[in-house]
C-alpha cells in the first residue's frame, strides 16, 4: 500500500536531517531527500522508504518511526529494535545496517533509519520464481545460521526494557487470547490442552528471541537470506521458539513437504544452527513451538472475525483472513491427532 507524496509533516524535518547529516562544510549540495513514500500502515508504527543524496550517489533508506507515543504492550519499541539490529550485525547476522537513530530535536518522531536492502519478501515469489531457485537451496541453512547468531548475543548487552517471555509466559498469553476471542473451538481447546501437557521446562538461560522469524520478515535475494527484518516482537525467551515458528505449516504456502518456510528441511535448519555455534537442537522442543505457533496464527485469524464485525476493519480481506482459522485446525490435527503415523516429514 503506497500513499501519495508529498508528506510535508514528515518530509520537512526529514529533509532538514538529511542536510545536517550530509551537507558538510564546504560542500554545496548533499543530503537532499528523494522519493519519500509510506510502505506500511500500522496503527502505531510507520515504515517509510526514501533516499538521501550523498557525494557517492543516492543512498536508499528505510525509516521506522512512531509519530507519537502509542505503543502496544508486547512491542519491544523502536529504540530497542535499533539496539538489537546493531548487536545482531556485530555478531555477523544478516540484518539491515542501522544508519541513524532519531533524536527528539529531529522532529521526526521516535525511531531509526536503516539502509534499504535489495530483495524480495513475498512468499509466493520466493517459493516459485526461477530467480530464487538457488536461494531456495540455501535458505534453510541461512536461517539456521542467522538464528544461531541472534541467539548467541550476550544477554548482558541486551536492553533492559526487553520483556522476558519464555514458554510458560507465552503459553499463559495464548490461553488468555483464546479466552478473550470467546469463540469456543474444540480443536483449539484440544491444542491448548496438548501444549499444557507437552510444555518443556523453561530454559535455565533465556536468549534473545526474534519472535517473528518467518516469510514477510525475511528479505531474500537470488543468493539467499539478505536480512532479518521487523524485530518488533523480540523478547527474552526460549530460542527454540524461533526455530519452531519458521516451521509452522502456515508459512509453507502449499509446499507442505518442506517444513522450513516451504523451502527447506528441519535437518538442514538444525544442522546449520549447530554448525554456527548454536546449542544442540532438541527436536521435541521445536515441535512444541511449532504447535504453539500454529495455534497462535489460528487465534490471530479467528480474532479477525471480531475485528471485521466491530467495523474496525470491515473489508472483505479482513473477513477472509477470519475464515483461514480452519486451515490451522487441519494443521493442528496433523500434529496432535494424525491420520497416519508416518516417519514424520522431519526431513
Amino acid at each position: 500500500m503506497t500513499e501519495a507524496s508529498p508528506h510535508p509533516a514528515l518530509a520537512e524535518p526529514l529533509a532538514a536531517l538529511g542536510r545536517r547529516l550530509f551537507h558538510g562544510p564546504g560542500s554545496h549540495s548533499g543530503g537532499e531527500l528523494h522519493g519519500l513514500r509510506r510502505l506500511s500502515g500500522g496503527a502505531s508504527q510507520e515504515t517509510w522508504a526514501f533516499s538521501f543524496n550523498t557525494p557517492r550517489g543516492p543512498r536508499p533508506l528505510i525509516l521506522r518511526r512512531k509519530p507519537n507515543d502509542r505503543q502496544s504492550d508486547l512491542a519491544a519499541g523502536l529504540e530497542t529494535e535499533a539496539v538489537l539490529l546493531r548487536l545482531a550485525a556485530e555478531m555477523g547476522a544478516r540484518v539491515p545496517p542501522v544508519f541513524y537513530v532519531l533524536a527528539p530535536e529531529d522532529g521526526c518522531g521516535t525511531g531509526f533509519i536503516m539502509d534499504r536492502l535489495e530483495g524480495e519478501t513475498i512468499p509466493r515469489k520466493i517459493l516459485r520464481d526461477a530467480e530464487f531457485a538457488h536461494a531456495r537451496e540455501v535458505l534453510a541453512r541461512d536461517c539456521g545460521e542467522a538464528l544461531s547468531l541472534i541467539h548467541r548475543i550476550a544477554t548482558a548487552r541486551l536492553p533492559k526494557t526487553l520483556r522476558a517471555a519464555p514458554g510458560s509466559v507465552r503459553l499463559a498469553e495464548l490461553e488468555r487470547t483464546y479466552a478473550a476471542i470467546n469463540r469456543p473451538n474444540p480443536v483449539f481447546a484440544l491444542a491448548l490442552r496438548w501444549l499444557a501437557a507437552h510444555h518443556p521446562p523453561d530454559p535455565a538461560c533465556l536468549a534473545l528471541v526474534h519472535g517473528d522469524f518467518r516469510h514477510g520478515n525475511l528479505m531474500i535475494g537470488p543468493d539467499g537470506l539478505v536480512g532479518v527484518l521487523d524485530w518488533e516482537l523480540a523478547h527474552l525467551g526460549d530460542p527454540m521458539e524461533d526455530l519452531g515458528w519458521i516451521c509452522v505449516p502456515s508459512w509453507r504456502f502449499g509446499a507442505i513437504e518442506k517444513p522450513v518456510g516451504g523451502f527447506g528441511s528441519r535437518r538442514s535448519l538444525f544442522a546449520a544452527y549447530e554448525a554456527a555455534g548454536g546449542a544442540p537442537v532438541d527436536p521435541f522442543r521445536v515441535r512444541f513451538w511449532e504447535v504453539f505457533g500454529a495455534l497462535q496464527w489460528g487465534l490471530m485469524c479467528a480474532g479477525m472475525a471480531e475485528v471485521y464485525r466491530s467495523g474496525t476493519d470491515a473489508s472483505v480481506e479482513r473477513a477472509m483472513i477470519g475464515r483461514r482459522a480452519s486451515e490451522v485446525e487441519i494443521d493442528l490435527l496433523d500434529y496432535i491427532a494424525p491420520l497416519v503415523h508416518e516417519a514424520d516429514d522431519a526431513g
Binding site: P186, V187, L190, P249, R252, G254, A255, I256, R323, R324, S326, E327, E329, I330, D331, L333, D334, A337, L339
Partner: peptide, 19 residues
C-alpha cells in the same frame, strides 16, 4: 474433529495443501 474441520476447509479453502 477431523470430519468437522474437513467440512470447514471444503468451504473455506479447498485448495489448501494439508486439506
Amino acid at each position: 474433529l477431523w470430519a468437522t474441520s474437513m467440512a470447514k476447509l471444503a468451504v473455506d479453502q479447498p485448495g489448501y495443501a494439508s486439506y
